[in-house]
Design a protein around this nucleic acid. Structure first.
Length: 261
DNA sequence: AATGTCTGCAACCGCGCTTGT
DNA sequence: GACAAGCGCGGTTGCAGACAT
């Protein structure tokens, strides 16, 4: 622990010059070794600060501007399962950062969530799903690998041609079959409507409730009766999510094998 | 026009995990 | 195995601009 000798790093907003120095450093040395930035560039910024600036602002490929309705839907949906796992959610949104998503959630969903009566349903549903995941995990520990991962190395269409991640509407009633909670998270399907108009700015609580039903289509009554799988109906990939954008993020993202329900 | 409040976002902080020695 | 340093993550803060009164 450095005491009196601790370097007084500069804090606060970054200047254009600082951005330039940091960018030059990363272009030269690559990402990482953040604590060396000050030494090499003369920047009076901590490694942490440099990393944050790069990851959240300077890194090439970052999207600027408002999130699309599809992105909103993804955030909303995955958050329902994972909670505040911002970095994990960000993996599903190429070009968006965890910080951006976190801020967006706080400003757009949280306050709405707090006042809305779907809040309790939201929490209830999430806890139920998480509980199911844990149960699955337990079951898998007892009976490992019932689910084969062939789809991991195959194309985005599964072996039964029931899923097609280029935008084709899926067929009725699929069961998402995964092995562990981790897999269920990693292979989380993009399930929302073909067209998903953003309801957030003007919506009422009623609409929110409908949205939840639409998004999840989870049959409250059929859950928890033995087969611990999530049930989705008539799900599809949003029009604006292209195959290539999936490719960007799915090198190690397996699309779960769907079986006809 | 002045003031107060809200909103959006960049940045900081603390903690925990990973890695190297 | 113990320790320290680096790194990443989630929570929080502070500020500027927009909006309301």
């Amino acid at each position: 622990m450095m005491m009196g000798s601790e370097k007084a790093w500069k804090k606060g907003p970054w200047t254009i010059e600082e951005d330039k120095l940091l960018t030059e450093y990363v272009n030269l040395h690559g990402e990482g070794r953040w604590s060396s930035v000050a030494k090499f560039t003369g920047l009076n910024r901590s490694g942490k600060s440099c990393r944050l600036r790069w990851v959240n602002y300077l890194k090439p490929g970052l999207k600027k501007g408002h999130l699309t309705p599809q992105e909103e839907a993804i955030i909303f949906e995955i958050h329902a399962v994972l909670g505040n796992k911002w970095s994990t959610i960000a993996k599903y949104l190429p070009g968006r950062t965890d910080n951006e998503i976190k801020n967006y959630w706080r400003t757009h969903f949280k306050k709405k969530d707090k006042s809305s009566r779907i809040n309790k349903k939201h929490e209830k549903r999430r806890s139920r799903i998480q509980k199911q995941m844990k149960q699955q995990e337990q079951q898998q520990k007892q009976q490992p690998q019932q689910y084969d991962l062939q789809s991991r190395t195959s194309s985005h269409a599964d072996s039964n041609n029931q899923t097609n991640f280029s935008g084709t509407v899926l067929q009725d009633n699929y069961h998402l079959v995964t092995t562990t909670m981790e897999e269920q998270i990693n292979y989380f399907p993009f399930v929302y409507q073909d067209y998903f108009p953003s309801p957030w700015p003007q919506s009422t609580g009623e609409e929110d409730e409908d949205l939840w039903v639409t998004l999840w289509n989870l049959d409250e009554e059929t859950q928890g009766h033995g087969d611990h799988v999530n049930q989705f109906n008539k799900v599809s990939i949003p029009n604006q999510v292209t195959t290539s954008s999936f490719d960007d993020i799915t090198n190690d993202l397996c699309f779960a094998k769907y079986v006809s329900g």
